[in-house]
Design a protein around this nucleic acid. Structure first.
Lengths: 158, 158
DNA sequence: CATAATTCACTGCGTGGCGCAGCTACTTTG
DNA sequence: CAAAGTAGCTGCGCCACGCAGTGAATTATG
């Protein structure tokens, strides 16, 4: 292995080390603290996030997205309805199904909880040039996809 | 606002949008799936991570790190001891205190669970030049620190 | 077309993690 | 040497979750 390879290896190790263990731990911590402050479960916060990204979804879909059984998802929705964060809407095309959609109050709640981190992250990015921002975007996009793939592999694989 | 500013604004929005809601959600999901596969709690996995980063710690410190009361931390440690993932070691300088340190088995467990994501992330980084890797490192380092600060603010703030 | 099989979402019940309050043991302080 | 402070550990109640079963609605089958 040449000297240049050693340098790159060191660089790779550092990036992965910061991104995967360190940053990931902080994100999980943040999610937990946010949930505590909102007076709901970690899972409930994930559910609101999922609705924000995915749009209206059925209880069954939400159960898959947050890794719960349909029974537990049903009670989770009960909690979120009681907290005025989501609404149950009958599916017009299939009378068995129910669509869950976030209320404005629910959108605001989760948005406010994460506003601080978003502001901080934008401030961090002020130091980057446009070209550098594109590099960062390539990375976070790839990382998000890889993480999603890994989640899927572990959920379904051996 | 000039055209260039609009472009940068769009870029910023995209980077933040992918990094904070999307990627963060995936990371929380992954943590949950890993915990389920290991047959332990999300909190337990966080605790093992914290020990990996922080080194041996007292139950009180661990309670703070994973956002639990000392009572719950005590039972969490009971579970991890039963699963042969951590060890209780008396502190020689203060006989009230106990140091928790991970066992080799515990280190291996959490390491194997995250090996897949680490491999994927390294593969993602193959496409980046050394200079680009340094840009990515600047970002993830800043993001990790900002997330940590935000956790601290929410835990202690109003 | 009638009927069986499937797919939804939704409940009783038991398990277990968690916070709260109180406890003992030890250390520090005056 | 007593009083206060700090460490970790337990009874108790609460509630989120998985499991198993129910009813309603849809789709497949003879």
């Amino acid at each position: 292995m040449t000297k240049a390879d050693q340098g790159r290896e060191e660089l790779l190790r550092e990036v992965v080390g910061v991104a995967v263990p360190n940053w990931a731990i902080r994100v999980v911590q943040l999610n937990n603290v946010v949930a505590t402050r909102l007076g709901v479960t970690d899972t409930d916060v994930q559910c609101l996030h999922a609705l924000d990204r995915h749009g209206p979804a059925t209880p069954g879909e939400l159960a898959k997205l947050v890794n719960l059984t349909t029974g537990s998802a049903s009670r989770m929705i009960d909690r979120l309805v009681a907290a005025d964060c989501v609404r149950r809407v009958p599916d017009p095309t299939d009378r068995r199904r129910v669509l869950i959609e976030p209320t404005q109050h629910g959108i605001d709640r989760v948005g406010q909880a994460y506003a601080g981190l978003i502001t901080r992250t934008r401030d961090d990015l002020d130091d980057f040039t446009d070209d550098e921002l594109r590099v960062v975007l390539r990375f976070v996009t790839a990382a998000e996809e890889s993480t999603a793939n890994e989640v899927h592999r572990l959920q379904t694989g051996p």
